[in-house]
Design a protein around this nucleic acid. Structure first.
Length: 431
RNA sequence: UCCGCGAUAGCUCAAUGGUGGAGCACGUGACUGUUAAUCACGGGGUUGUAGGUUCGAGUCCUACUCGCGGAGCCA
């Protein structure tokens, strides 16, 4: 008798093994009890027949409540009728703890009820699948950069001021320094890293105190931000598409079962192969106007505009060369058209909207100073950042990808609150 | 912050201004192959809060609280 996991049952057909887990669901009919066990690696139907166990064990199996913890020992059988394709013929069952009445029943629940019980909700199959895919995505992100000569470069979470000077920040007291702000982006620090290491990536949590109430916003979310010295806008876009293709294909290869639990249309993900379409802001505006949407040239795209652009393609789209007014101060001015900035957004397919924002950075000291003044930012706070343009400034570029939006898109999940273990939103700080 | 919708059993919902119900969950029982099992029986309610209209309010009116959906902002 050996202990194993449900995910490993396929290697133990015909053998007697022990599983330890929790009761996901059960049914019984007279002399048979079907226990669906959950052990964190999958689900397995454990069949308890009255004649194969003691009287006490049979009674105990019959009265197990949802989410009670228990272990079973039995013979592994291939069984196509069963969840996961395998089944355990139980010879021994041991109760660990009889669970109290479990609030999340197999029927429907409202979002508030579930969110209040997020610590339990993550045990359900759909949430489990989403978070397994989240892990796969994060692992792919690290693999991608680690295997291409990037150095992980952690940016601080406490910062003295805003990166872009616009978004509302979370403020917290900081000894005698007055206030510290929770970072809204590690990018400026990432640029310093790129000048030291060539290619780096910042990967950590970021915070936005905006009172956004949409399916695409969290107040605390994770972002990966690569930054590369001697990169221009085109090289940046080459890296973006190679990166996104890699992540999607890794999930398809390693997390197919989880995608199936989520009933994700896999053909849509299989189509995510290079090259991705690249269109300029001007071309994107043409698409929007052709579809008759009311859009004023020079504005940033709203959610319906992003959907309109995205639905013309079966892959993510990169929109580049933006009017400089709608983009951040650090983006490089276009040499051919000084009213434009060398920014690029990637819009996910199927109307999921923006998952990446990036740019070639302004490397000219004077132009950058001018931008900082135009945006009325405190010049002194950016002195260290301007040093990067004083001492060996080079063309460089980078981008930031929101992990939760990416998970949401790849999983086909409507709202980002289900793509992180404990979502933080406006009006949601618990549990 | 703005617009719209909602709050009734543990959960999801129903109830023409006139005695608040169902399904699930829970409890008891039946059944050797169940797949959100099925069947029988049972317990379960200060209708979000405060006020008002009315002979009578879950239902109509006002305010508040909380939530949901969308917009703006963004990843």
């Amino acid at each position: 008798m050996k202990q194993t996991t449900i995910s490993d049952l396929k290697n133990h057909v015909g053998e007697t093994v022990t599983l330890k887990g929790w009761l996901y669901n059960s049914r019984h009919s007279g002399k048979l009890v079907f226990l669906i066990m959950r052990d964190g690696t999958g689900l397995c139907q454990c069949v308890v027949f009255i004649k194969n166990v003691s009287q006490e064990e049979f009674e105990s199996a019959k009265s197990l409540t949802q989410e009670s913890s228990f272990s079973v020992t039995g013979t592994v059988k291939a069984e196509p009728r069963s969840v996961g394709g395998y089944e355990l013929d139980v010879q021994k069952m041991e109760l660990v703890q009889l669970a109290h009445e479990y609030p999340i029943t197999p029927k429907e629940h409202g979002i508030e009820f579930l969110a209040d019980r997020r610590h339990l909700w993550i045990r359900s199959q759909r949430q489990w699948a989403v978070l397994k895919i989240r892990h796969e995505i994060i692992k792919s992100v690290r693999n991608f950069f680690d295997s291409r000569g990037f150095t992980l470069f952690d940016a601080p979470i406490f910062t003295p001021n805003s990166v872009e000077g616009t978004t509302t920040l979370f403020e917290t007291p900081y000894f005698d320094e007055g206030s510290a702000y929770l970072t809204q982006s590690g990018q400026l620090y990432g640029e310093a890293g790129a000048m030291a290491f060539g290619k780096i990536y910042v990967f950590g949590p970021t915070f936005r105190a905006e009172k956004s109430k949409t399916r695409r916003h969290l107040t605390e979310f994770w972002m990966v931000e690569p930054e590369m010295a001697y990169y221009d806008l085109d090289m940046n876009m080459d890296l973006m598409e190679e990166f996104v293709e890699y992540i999607v294909q890794q999930v398809l290869t390693n997390r197919r079962a989880e995608l199936e639990i989520l009933e994700r249309d896999i053909s849509k993900l299989e189509a995510v192969k290079r090259p991705f379409p690249r269109i300029s802001y001007d071309e994107a505006v043409e698409i929007i106007h052709k579809k008759g949407l009311p859009f004023e040239y020079g504005n940033d795209f709203g959610a319906p505009d992003e959907t309109a652009i995205g639905e013309d393609f079966d892959k993510p789209v990169m929109v580049h060369t933006w009017p400089k007014e709608v983009k951040a101060f650090y983006m490089k001015q276009d040499e051919k058209d000084p009213t434009k900035a060398k920014g690029v957004d990637m819009l996910a397919s199927e109307g999921y909207g923006e998952i990446i924002g990036g740019a070639q950075r302004e490397d000219n000291l004077d132009l950058l100073l001018e931008k900082i003044r135009e945006h009325q930012l405190p010049e002194e706070a950016y002195n260290w950042y301007l040093d990067l343009r004083r001492y060996g400034s080079v063309p460089h570029a980078g981008f930031g990808m929101g992990i939760e939006r990416t998970v949401s898109w790849i999983c086909g999940i409507h709202h980002v609150r289900e793509t992180i273990p404990f979502a933080r939103l406006m009006g949601r700080l618990k549990p």
